[in-house]
Simulated assay, not measured.
Amino acid sequence: MKIIADSAIPFLRGVLEPFAEVEYLPGTAISAADVRNADALVIRTRTRCDEKLLADSRVKLIATATIGFDHIDTAWCAAHGIEVTTAAGCNARGVLQWVGAALVHLSRTQGWQPAERTLGIVGVGHVGSLVKAYAEGWGFRVVCCDPPREERERCGFRTLEEVAREADILTFHTPLDASTRHMADSRLFGLMKPGAILINSSRGEVVDGEALLRSGLGWALDVWEHEPHLDPALLENALLATPHIAGYSEQGKANATAMSVASLARRFGLPLEGWYPPQAAPARRRPISWQELCRTIGGAYDIASESRSLKERPGDFESMRDHYAYRREYF
């Protein structure tokens, strides 16, 4: 059995080797020749899995250690008997804490308190649900939009237009697909309050960057169109700018790797059910007040410093991601 794995996936080396031949490669360098004799791939978003990569291979499973799967042609894979698994929800608390850090920074630099702001949440899944619960506890008025959930559950979520009109801060937590690509466009920006802030930590293509530049809004971005080639003006004028690392917590990465290993174990009968990286500390899941968040988040994650680093060295975007010092979740 042979497995091709992205060399930047943490905690993985040595785990699969007793049961398979494992070759580690940079995600962007994985080629059709590399995967031709592979039974499984363990990847991140930097590997595009489509007919071009997979057509002549014997791959039966693609385990992506990411929450999204827009880098995988799932229809082609399904038609050719290739199973695809994701790590949905693995880094939800890491993203929550990135959002918390962004909100604290904005409140300090702009001089407001949560009770004075309406937070709009677009996408109320693994991440958005956490952001909603914690933001309400912090004192924000929260309005939510999630059309698929509203259609299924009739849970009282607002339309995207209603949320855009009411929000002082609008944060996106959606997957990327045909319905969400450029969801945040010039039309939507025209509905928002003057001086409102857009936060995106989902996928870069959810937001039309060129339209955002013309919008008159403020923005804090972790994800960007055309990564790793960032629009210089979008970067320079961002209130906060980080290199697609919102979910890069130690526990989030451990969860993602563990979920990928579990997929391999189930598909190929490997004795690795329940495996979890022993070097990863358990997360402390607990409520946290706004006052405690303001007091402690800087010691856990200096988002302003990270933003300055990216603005100073945008060409290091990929290196910053690949060599990131994972944050530790503390709530």
Score class of each variant (00 low, 15 high):
Leu191Lys: 08
Leu191Tyr: 08
Leu191Pro: 03
Met192Tyr: 05
Met192Val: 09
Lys193Tyr: 06
Lys193Pro: 05
Lys193Trp: 08
Pro194Ala: 12
Pro194Asp: 11
Pro194Phe: 06
Gly195Val: 07
Gly195Tyr: 05
Gly195Asp: 07
Ala196Ile: 07
Ile197Leu: 13
Ile197Trp: 02
Ile197Phe: 01
Ile197Arg: 00
Ile199Ser: 00
Ile199Tyr: 00
Ile199Pro: 00
Asn200Ser: 14
Asn200Ala: 13
Asn200Cys: 12
Asn200Met: 12
Asn200Gly: 15
Ser201Asp: 15
Ser201Tyr: 06
Ser202Trp: 11
Ser202Ile: 12
Arg203Ile: 12
Arg203Pro: 01
Gly204His: 08
Gly204Thr: 14
Gly204Met: 14
Glu205Arg: 12
Glu205Gly: 04
Val206Lys: 04
Val206Met: 12
Val206Ser: 09
Val207Leu: 09
Val207Cys: 08
Val207Gln: 01
Val207Pro: 00
Asp208His: 10
Gly209Lys: 05
Gly209Arg: 03
Gly209Thr: 15
Glu210Met: 13
Glu210Phe: 08
Ala211Tyr: 02
Ala211Thr: 11
Ala211Cys: 11
Ala211Asn: 09
Leu212Cys: 09
Leu212Asn: 02
Leu212Ala: 11
Leu212Gln: 02
Leu213Cys: 13
Leu213Thr: 09
Arg214Met: 11
Arg214Glu: 15
Ser215Gln: 07
Ser215Gly: 10
Ser215Cys: 11
Gly216Ser: 07
Gly216Ala: 08
Gly216Ile: 11
Gly216Gln: 07
Leu217Pro: 01
Leu217Lys: 00
Leu217Trp: 01
Leu217Asp: 00
Gly218Asp: 06
Gly218Tyr: 05
Trp219Pro: 01
Trp219Leu: 10
Trp219Phe: 09
Trp219Glu: 06
Ala220Lys: 05
Leu221Thr: 04
Leu221Cys: 07
Leu221Ile: 10
Leu221Asn: 02
Asp222Gly: 10
Val223Arg: 00
Trp224Ala: 11
Trp224Lys: 03
Trp224Arg: 03
Trp224Val: 07
Glu225Ser: 13
Glu225Pro: 03
His226Gly: 13
His226Thr: 14
His226Lys: 15
His226Asn: 15
His226Ala: 15
Glu227Phe: 11
Pro228Ala: 14
Pro228Gly: 13
Pro228Tyr: 06
His229Thr: 14
His229Trp: 12
Leu230Tyr: 06
Leu230Asn: 02
Asp231Trp: 03
Asp231Thr: 09
Pro232Ile: 12
Pro232Phe: 10
Ala233Cys: 08
Leu235Met: 09
Leu235His: 04
Glu236Val: 09
Glu236Phe: 06
Glu236Lys: 13
Glu236Ser: 14
Asn237Met: 09
Asn237Ile: 04
Ala238His: 02
Ala238Asp: 04
Ala238Val: 09
Leu239Lys: 06
Leu239Asn: 02
Leu240His: 05
Leu240Val: 06
Leu240Pro: 00
Leu240Thr: 00
Leu240Lys: 00
Ala241Cys: 08
Ala241Gln: 05
Ala241Pro: 01
Ala241Trp: 04
Thr242Pro: 04
Thr242Trp: 06
Thr242Gly: 12
Thr242Val: 12
